[in-house]
Nucleic acid binder design. Structure first.
Length: 432
DNA sequence: ATGGGTCAG
DNA sequence: CTTTCTGACCCAT
């Protein structure tokens, strides 16, 4: 090892992520999917968002619409599944709990990714990566890859390399790879492979003669900040081995919450948009309450499809709330301010609400003169309690309470059972 | 402050 | 018939 011993003790970052997470989560509970091409579909069963390696081998592209694939699914033996977020959330929690045993310094970066602060000699770090991989496979049943490097950006890159190069066996410790091999790789990969660099920046970098990762790693960080911004500068420094994207604390509060979905079929009346607003108003209330937050501003919006360039319309209204609130009645009422802007006959493809200017539920003593009568009666809690006991759709404000599901709600025709979170959908084991 | 642009997963 | 939906952050105004 060429590095001085002191360098080997520097803290490093391990980046762990689950291979094609949704498809792997489905397989963990349905072993018959093993070895088969599997895809998981986006909301409304629109397009493929996750593909098993076998599905990729069939040439199925990321984002490919299901209606194009469906006719050939049988011939391919392709299994398509609707997104089962309850299952994925639960599998994710198990993976993260397990990873937390390797380091208290754990940042859950997304549903299927985490960064861990780790220390040790190169041999120890590689062993740790392998141990994580086998433990997650054994205990949760999903495959992960691990990249370990001095910075987050390099750890992501190492992980990607481990994923694409079978020689690594799913674990790549950056500093253990010979420098010449690393440089060769960085000289061949496009800047677009780097975390934080996407289409727009790639084009701008290319204009300046920066094409490969090696090109970018070789620039002067200060000059790049002047031509671009501090984010790109941080990326350059991280590529050079200087950590400047810190491990984040778990985020408690959010700056904003958005509730928005495309409809299974277009909505053409203000009355139906009103129903959507009622549902989202209550969801917003529940989520705010869960996080102990209140909102000061609500924005309601709707929009036609981007695919249909004629008759486009994107109405929106911004409603300042008289006082911070998480009350479902007030939020729903505010959201209904959108309705006068809705033109009957226009085909709206989506609608939603956004609550912003969030703050913690106050211990501020409210002036009784302005006290909110609904808040007093804890309608939010009541609604939540009933929903918890009798299921979504059993109670609601306005039209939100009707049963049987209005026909704009999300289409999920190929949903797998919620194996881990619903007693009545537990997998059955038959002992012969 | 805020709205537009960019990115991520 | 589709391009998840949601969230963050930087920067110019």
């Amino acid at each position: 090892m060429a590095r001085p011993a002191v360098m080997q003790r520097m803290p490093q970052i391990a980046h762990v992520d689950v291979n094609c997470f949704y498809a792997s989560a489905e397989r963990a509970f349905n072993p018959s999917l093993e070895g088969k091409p599997v895809i998981v579909l986006s909301n409304n069963d629109g397009c493929a968002v996750t593909r098993s390696p076998e599905a990729k081998a069939l040439g199925i592209a990321m984002g490919e619409p299901w209606f194009k694939l469906a006719p050939r699914a049988k011939e391919w033996g392709l299994v398509a599944l609707s997104s089962n977020y309850e299952l994925y959330g639960d599998i994710s929690a198990r993976v993260m709990e397990l990873l937390g045993r390797y380091s208290a310094w754990l940042e859950v970066y997304s549903i299927d990714e985490a960064f861990l602060g780790v220390k040790g000699t190169p041999a120890e770090l590689v062993a740790m990566g392998r141990s994580m991989k086998s433990a997650v496979q054994r205990n949760v049943g999903v495959p992960v890859c691990v990249g370990i490097a001095p910075t987050k950006t390099l750890a992501k890159l190492a992980n990607k390399w481990a994923k694409n190069n079978p020689a690594f066996g799913g674990v790549c410790h950056w500093d253990s790879v010979p420098a010449a091999v690393r440089e060769d790789l960085m000289g061949r990969l496009s800047v677009e492979e780097i975390w934080g660099i996407a289409g727009r920046l790639t084009r701008r970098l290319n204009v300046r003669g920066i094409f490969t990762i090696a090109d970018l790693a070789g620039v002067d960080p200060v000059k790049i900040r002047d031509k671009f911004n501090v984010v790109v500068m941080r990326t350059v420094l991280e590529l050079q081995g200087t950590p400047c994207i810190p491990m984040e604390e778990e985020r408690i509060g959010r700056d904003q919450l958005i509730f928005s979905r495309s409809f299974a079929k277009p909505i053409t009346t203000a009355a139906d948009i009103g129903q959507v607003m009622s549902v989202y108003g209550q969801q917003a209330s529940a989520r705010l309450a869960k996080h102990g937050l209140q909102a000061k501003i609500l924005t309601a919006f709707a929009g036609t499809s981007h695919f249909n360039p004629k008759d486009t319309s994107y109405p929106s209204v911004c409603v300042p709330l008289p006082m911070p609130t998480a009350d479902p009645v007030i939020l729903t009422k505010a959201a209904h301010a959108l309705l006068p802007r809705i033109v009957d006959g226009i085909r709206y493809a989506r609608a939603g609400i956004m609550v912003t200017d969030l703050r913690p539920t106050g211990n501020q003593a409210p002036l009784s003169l302005f006290e909110n009568p609904y808040e007093e009666r804890h309608i939010g809690e009541l609604l939540e309690d009933v929903t918890r006991r009798y299921g979504r759709g059993s109670i609601g404000l306005g039209f939100a309470g009707i049963r049987g599901g209005p026909d704009w709600t999300m289409k999920r025709d190929m949903l797998s059972p919620r194996y881990t979170t619903h007693w009545d959908e537990l997998p059955l084991v038959k002992a012969a």
